[in-house]
Amino acid sequence: MTRPVWLFDLDNTLHDANPRIFPHISRSMTGYLVRELGLSEEQAGELRARYWHRYGATLLGLMRHHGTDPHHFLRETHRFPDLGTMVLRQPALRNALRALPGRKLVFSNAPRSYADAVLDVMGVRALFEAVFSIERMRFRPKPARRTFLALLRSLGVAPARCVMVEDSSANLRMAKTLGMTTVWISPLTRAPAFVDLRLRSVVELPRHLDKLL
């Protein structure tokens, strides 16, 4: 593969968001629905689950059925008292990313301000050419096909040049359907057929370049 284009997810790919970040965002989203829609916490939780099941994201349901301003929602639900202590850093991440040839971008359903802040905390923001956040996707999150196609058009590259690095199997399925090489970041040992390589951590990538390029 000539000068590959690496597309990295952010949460649970470049860092582990499960212990601290995701619980905080979940509480913030429930609180937002309680305040803005006048719901109880139980009702807010049920509505979030319903919209997630139907649309793949709470925000899409809120925009469609309640006229929610997506910028306001993302700003209010991604406030952190001390992000620096909440992000779980991988000490070897910076060197691992620098060892990868080609272009590197972040392709995340997260808001831009949050993505930039997390990358800054980890000390790797300068290693990425760009961040394709939910705003840049016009609030159409992965794995929407048109979102992937819009990204490819913006980059001016063919899918065959791209390596998608993700923890989400649904996103990787779409990437493979379009012709990308896929890397699944997961502790599970059995990978779906549409996964080209499974790793426990992105810091392992440089040791497996011969299997990808």
Rank of each mutant, 00 (worst) to 15 (best):
P23H: 05
A57G: 03
L155E: 14
E46F: 04
L178N: 09
G156M: 02
T77V: 14
R136T: 01
L37E: 04
V106P: 03
W184Y: 03
Y51S: 10
A44P: 00
K211Y: 04
Q90Y: 11
L10H: 07
L119Q: 07
M180W: 05
L37V: 06
L39R: 05
T177R: 14
V106D: 07
E166V: 07
G61R: 08
E129G: 05
P143Y: 13
R103G: 00
R198G: 00
L105H: 11
R48F: 07
R207N: 07
A193Q: 06
W52P: 01
M164V: 12
V34K: 11
I21S: 04
R190Q: 12
K176E: 10
R48D: 07
T77S: 13
T189M: 13
A158T: 13
R98L: 14
G123C: 10
K104G: 04
D116M: 10
V203I: 15
N18S: 10
M180L: 15
F22N: 01
A126E: 15
R161Y: 02
A110E: 10
R75F: 10
V203F: 09
R140Y: 01
D11V: 06
W184T: 02
L7T: 01
H208A: 02
E204F: 05
P206F: 09
F139A: 04
I185L: 10
D116L: 14
L14R: 07
R79W: 10
H72Y: 04
R89W: 00
V5T: 15
C162K: 06
L88K: 04
C162H: 06
E166I: 02
Y55G: 04
A44H: 02
H78P: 08
T181N: 08
R198H: 00
V165M: 01
V202M: 01
F107W: 07
R207K: 12
R146C: 00
G179L: 09
M63V: 07
L33I: 09
R94M: 02
R190D: 11
V163K: 01
P192I: 02
M164Q: 11
L62R: 02
D167E: 13
H24I: 03
P4Y: 10
L83T: 12
T182L: 05
F128L: 01
G102P: 00
R89P: 00
A99I: 08
L88R: 11
R153V: 03
M164G: 03
E204P: 05
E42H: 13
R89E: 12
M63A: 01
L97M: 13
H24W: 15
A17F: 06
R200K: 15
L10K: 06
T77I: 11
R146S: 04
R145M: 00
L100I: 12
D69S: 07
V124G: 12
F128K: 04
P141K: 07
A110V: 09
R136N: 00
H24Y: 14
A115E: 03
H24G: 03
L155Q: 13
A92Q: 13
V34E: 14
A49E: 15
L47F: 06
F73L: 07
P111L: 06
W6F: 09
N109P: 11
R75A: 15
V203L: 08
S113T: 14
P111Q: 05
T30A: 11
